[in-house]
Simulated scan of single mutants.
Amino acid sequence: MAQQKVAFIGTGPDPDTPDWGTSAAMSYHHADAYAALENCSLVACADLVRDHAEAFADRFGIDRHDVYEDYMEMLRAVEPDIVSVCTPVPTHADIVIDCTESDALRAIHCEKPMADTFGDCRRMVSACADNDIQLTFNHQRRFSETYLEARRRITEGEIGTIERVEIGGKNLFDFGSHLIDVCNGLNDGRRPEWALCQVDYSVENVRYGSHNENQALAMWEYENGVHALLSTGDGTAAFDSLVRVRGTEGVLDLWPSGEHDLRVHRDGETTPEAVDCENDTRPIFGAIADVVSSLDGGTTPVLDAEDVLTANEIIFGCWESVRRRARVEFPLEIEDNPLQSMVESGALTPRSAEE
């Protein structure tokens, strides 16, 4: 098993006092997961705020000599095998593409969402493919015990054949990217065929540098006939679980409201089965382990960029439906971010959250 040198771009401030929506200091969670692997060495970090990078280095035993403000200087000096990118969303694409200039780099693991335009999402995937660099994104819920148990039960036919998935969460982009990706995984990675959506964006909601709607109602259809229905809004989503899977013989809820992780209601049973999944607090450990083992074994990682791209295509497709005021057919052929473009053009005029 080869020893992998790991470096970090974007360390963020103190992780013990995260500023949700601005910086969640995800690099610390990435580093904890790499440090748990015997074949990974944490060798360098870079952040525009040197104090942040030095605090990160001190936490993980990185020499101060290997602390940088310029990530390209770090790549040239250290030549890491793996880089974790944990910066604001609008910076992802340029950083990832810059990283492909490193001859030594073998893998990039980037925080989600992918990028703030669909064109940038595709550019990242293409650049890494052209340079034979493994690109993954941290949709870590695919490694939660809840997801894995739900997938096992669906595969074994506990609720029959999937007919519809339902999503209830805060928003489409920042939070919803996780949940849409989960639904894609539960539906065996099937491609979407069309999407239809409406949003309310009356109060500015910028998270990690990107706009997010206040409420949305959307639906789309997968190529195998499974439909998806999504309702977003902080405290106003229509469903009482983050993901609900409706089958021909029952219903399965992932992360329902209440104390349990999973709820299974089979047809003919009066009381649903409540399931608590063990070790469901740090799925990032499984995500990072898969990134590294795929690199060693030459296999396709679960969080492969091509699969993650589908979740982002659905998100941007939903917002494009709002812009066109019509159903959108896939594959999606736009370059921009429709929600952001509607704000910039004046078609949407969210007032400041401070007003």
Rank of each mutant, 00 (worst) to 15 (best):
A93F: 01
H265P: 06
A305Q: 01
G250C: 09
P80L: 07
C86P: 02
I314N: 00
D103N: 09
L309Y: 02
F137Y: 10
R327F: 05
S294Q: 00
G247Y: 07
W20I: 09
D132G: 08
R244K: 14
V343A: 07
S41C: 07
D103E: 15
M114V: 03
V78E: 14
C45F: 05
A353Y: 11
R323E: 12
P113M: 05
H178V: 01
L309P: 02
A55Q: 09
I314A: 01
V302M: 08
S257E: 14
Y34D: 00
D32F: 04
R153W: 10
D81E: 08
R246I: 15
N138M: 03
R207P: 00
F173C: 00
A238I: 05
F8P: 01
N212Y: 00
H65W: 08
F8M: 05
V89N: 00
P13E: 05
D32Y: 04
R263T: 12
P15V: 06
V206F: 03
N138K: 02
L148P: 01
D94A: 15
S210Q: 08
W194Y: 13
G225M: 12
C40T: 13
T146L: 06
E213G: 02
A274Q: 14
G160Q: 08
E278F: 11
F60G: 06
D336Y: 04
E313A: 05
Q215V: 13
M1V: 13
R123Y: 03
K5V: 01
S293I: 06
T87C: 02
H65K: 15
D19V: 12
C110W: 00
A216T: 06
W319L: 10
R64V: 11
A195G: 13
F239G: 05
D267C: 09
A33V: 03
S257M: 11
D130N: 14
A305Y: 02
T281I: 07
D181H: 01
M26V: 04
L42Y: 06
V78D: 09
V85R: 01
E259M: 11
G297E: 15
P283C: 04
F316V: 01
T100I: 08
A305S: 13
A77H: 11
V226W: 01
G235D: 12
S352A: 13
D174E: 00
I9Q: 02
F239S: 06
F175A: 04
E149W: 02
N214T: 10
D276K: 11
Q4P: 02
